[in-house]
Design a protein around this nucleic acid. Structure first.
Lengths: 272, 272
DNA sequence: AGGTGATCGATTGTCAACAATCTTTCATCT
DNA sequence: AGATGAAAGATTGTTGACAATCGATCACCT
């Protein structure tokens, strides 16, 4: 049926017309779907725990199941989806332990990022940081919570990008998705989100200052504040997945498949 | 064909099963191929930079291209393969910068791992560490270089497992592959590998001691030694790329997430 | 000769159908 | 009734064929 419609779809959905001489990204359906799906998940179009069925998503994206499966596989590796063979794939439902881990390793990674860039901080770095801080403040003033989440992630993410450390950046990106996912859920549940308007003033100030130790302490404290707030919220939920076995190397489990599947009620809304 | 095999890989997690009622064997061709391919790559069956063609591998594994593609996609995400759409997929060829990044972040992650487990070190931890250290020493004495590499990775990996931090562990695993890949190449090129027999004595001693600061310095020094040795090797070979002529270490990333990393990195330098 | 454009082979991307497996439902038995 | 087991429906896993793209080769034009 749709063999000949590929070109039209490809040209229509892409927004890369103004590149001066930038390498045109070789387009693949898979790449587009990864972006679209990730965006849909992070935007909260599908609640944590809700199932994703390949056939539906494939038709919604207008492609066949092949490319869609590969895209899903990538999001699984990113930690945004969890899957059980022959059974189903769901949006990840973060446990208290997960969020705790994210915050704890964030402290470590972000300090490492600053170690990398500390002697190389220049005007460009300063401007980038300040600009993103201002953007964040404006979003908070406008009480646009979704934008505030993105702006805060942009602010922190800028440090990772500026560090010029590819492995570090990739690690951050794999964490960022889940962090954003959690913040979105937190926001939906609590109505209002938490970042105070001056929550990042000290962060930016010490980041541009001359005392690394001050920055280290600020980051530690910053994360501790976010972490405790986070855990309080998660603890208030009754969900509480299975306690991991008391040993290291606890395999991650999406909880009992029956519970997860039956709990999944809201089917996927339109994704586009 | 036979479907009832073993080994299952849940998304993101490892194929570990613990309790007596562990989730069993749901088999997937993809899971088997991922393991087999990874093993082949790490074992050095295919040189860094050599191409992987889907049709050949598919017939070689006795499956169709679908599952094989998904398996390759996972190894791409792990950083063991690099791909260019419509063009080809190759075993990653690490650059000096890559190895430098690996070593630098290893210092950070391993110290973090010890921070996590430091107050919880018990007899089991001590035994595990000592046992792996002995295994490593034996491999070195036997002059079995391949086994030495695995043993050394087992020793360090044990710390990450014992930390009980899933994100940390996954990050380590994503690094471990490339590290092993590099060590194998190093070994093939130099004939003999480098770890002195007593190279880890101080490491294990401080890891089981009472002074965290000593351990921190030992790890930093340990990695610095490995790193400098590494860079000397890579620098010596920088003028002589491998057999495949038009090769890649310049722009080795796919149109997926890795592209974003490199793109962001370039952006931080260029104007905007 | 040097550059230019078409052609061919090889490889990856995509599709639609088929097979295996899981979950649920419902009839059956104790 | 409660448990047990078989059939049905739904979803994922797998396959082989087809289409799009890339790189190299070679004829052709200036």
């Amino acid at each position: 049926m749709g063999r000949g419609m590929k070109e039209a779809r490809l040209g229509g959905g892409d927004t890369r017309s103004v590149s001066q001489f930038a390498r045109v990204p070789k387009s693949t359906f898979r790449a587009h779907i990864v972006d679209g799906l990730r965006q849909a998940i992070l935007r909260g179009d599908m609640e944590p725990g809700s199932p994703l069925i390949e056939a539906n998503l494939a038709s919604q994206f207008g492609v066949s199941r092949g490319p869609l499966r590969e895209a899903m596989r990538q999001l699984i590796d990113e930690g945004l989806l969890v899957t059980v063979p022959y059974t189903g794939t769901h949006v990840v439902d973060l446990s208290v332990e997960d969020v705790r881990e994210i915050y704890s390793i964030r402290v470590n990674l972000e300090i490492f990022a600053f170690e990398q860039i500390w002697p190389r901080r220049d005007a460009q770095f300063r401007d980038g940081l300040v600009r993103r801080h201002e953007a964040l403040t404006q979003c908070i003033d406008a009480q646009d919570d979704a934008a505030s989440i993105s702006a805060e992630l942009e602010l922190h993410g800028f440090v990772y990008e500026a560090a010029g450390h590819r492995i570090l950046l990739k690690t951050w990106e794999s964490i960022r998705g889940r962090l954003q996912l959690y913040w979105a859920a937190h926001h939906r549940a609590h109505g209002i989100r938490g970042p105070r308007r001056d929550g990042h003033d000290d962060y930016v100030r010490t980041a541009l200052g001359d005392n690394f130790e001050d920055l280290r302490q600020e980051i530690t404290g910053h994360m501790a504040r976010g972490g405790s707030q986070t855990e309080a919220f998660l603890a208030s939920r009754v969900q509480e997945p299975i306690a991991p076995p008391s040993l290291p190397s606890a395999a991650n489990d999406a909880g009992t498949t029956a519970a997860a599947a039956s709990r999944a009620r809201e089917l996927s809304k339109s994704v586009e």
